[in-house]
Nucleic acid binder design. Structure first.
Lengths: 117, 117
DNA sequence: GTAAACGTCAACCAAATGGTTGAATAACGC
DNA sequence: GCGTTATTCAACCATTTGGTTGACGTTTAC
């Protein structure tokens, strides 16, 4: 195992290239969520969010489990690990400051107002 | 400064989503290169590579400087830093093992034969 | 000066992406 | 059973993406 293919990096990075999907990941960082609840803060159809969730799922960034009529979405942070390894090799970046990370999240969450400019 | 916008993460991750572009970055990790030399190992036209280099440039991942009739391409690893910070926040990944990184590069370089299946 | 090397531009093309709407399926609540 | 809630599916659309080819502008070599 650990057959880390180019394909996987392709889908992971492509999935991360969309701001809606990154915002979804940030939301799931706090807790697992149902599809409807994921969709709530966005100004787009439920079907569109459903598609985004499929993209995240096939990239391995989240998993989805149906319990009753509700499909729960759960972050799978391990999928980011390979991509993170790939990136870090380019700069030997120092360990991340969690405050930095929270600033990024604040910029991206859909319900939060973006202050800059 | 440090106006880290969503737009930047969009373009950086989108740029990384293509295997040709990741391979180019890996090549530039070793040394600066002319456009023609970047294109040489790939089985696609020079114009296509030129477009890929533009995508990488507008994402800030590389810079290009023309000296004489040769345009030199140079890796700009700082652009990866913000994206790396974004990603690391999801898992608090341990510091990367450089051997891991070299395995990834081996999988992606175009002139290297990819053994897996 | 003329030919070759370096690189981009413009036009084109097929396929993928990100969104919509409306119908369909499945599970609850009563 | 029946309406409601949760989610996906299918068809459609506009835009973007990743590639091609051929013409074009520069710089260099001789």
């Amino acid at each position: 195992m650990a057959t880390t293919s180019t394909l996987k990096l392709d889908t992971v990075f492509a999935a991360l290239g969309d701001p809606t999907r990154r915002a979804i990941l940030a939301m799931l960082l706090e807790d697992d969520m149902a599809v409807t609840d994921v969709a709530e803060p966005f100004e787009m159809s439920l079907a569109a969010i459903s598609k985004h969730l499929q993209v995240l799922t096939s990239a391995g960034l989240i998993s989805q489990e149906k319990r009753g009529r509700v499909k729960w979405c759960k972050l799978e942070p391990d999928a980011l690990k390979e991509a993170s390894i790939w990136m870090q090799g380019f700069g030997q970046f120092e360990a991340v400051n969690l405050d930095d990370f929270e600033r990024f999240l604040a910029l991206e969450l859909p319900n939060e107002d973006i202050a800059s400019e």
